[in-house]
């Protein structure tokens, strides 16, 4: 009786084992490609830190918006000190791994800024480090994407 139970258990295990072998094929990994980051959209300024200290509650920063349009143009709404002053065109260095955002004002002035693009609390954010005033002051602007309804 005991040996029958043992044989049955072994058969079940063997079945599971052999079935599981084919679950992932090498080509599945080879075919994997990092997705293109959909950076285009309306980005709202959510938090600001100054020299490492969060000053988000010190004044109303949330009206500032960076609109990165699908057609490659950008506009700034309710302007606050930023890397550029005017509207223009934008692009990233790599659509799969965007590390730098280049903003080219219509006046011709071009600024490239470092970009972090993590997912925080299930939402994609953009984090930009800049010094619009005195060079010794570093600000981190964190933008959150406003989803279209």
């Amino acid at each position: 009786m005991k040996s029958k139970t043992l044989i049955a258990a072994c058969m079940v295990l063997a079945t599971v084992f052999f079935m599981s072998c084919d679950a992932f094929m090498d080509h599945d990994f080879k075919d994997y490609k990092e997705s293109y980051k959909d950076i285009a959209g309306v980005w709202q300024l959510k938090s600001v830190s100054r020299n490492g200290i969060d000053i988000s509650n010190s004044m109303n920063f949330s009206q500032f918006r960076l609109n990165l349009n699908e057609d490659g143009t950008y506009t700034l709404e309710n302007y606050l000190p930023f890397a550029v002053k005017g509207n223009g065109n934008w692009n990233v260095d790599d659509p799969q791994y965007p590390y730098n955002l280049t903003l080219r004002e219509t006046s011709g002035n071009e600024v490239t800024i470092g970009l972090k693009y993590p997912i925080v609390n299930g939402k994609r954010i953009i984090s930009i480090t800049l010094s619009p005033g005195c060079y010794s002051n570093t600000y981190i602007y964190v933008f959150e994407k406003i989803e279209n309804n």
Partner: peptide, 12 residues
Amino acid sequence: QPLASLQDDFVT
């Protein structure tokens, strides 16, 4: 704050 600031900083 910050003590070293210009007009395009956020000054407290």
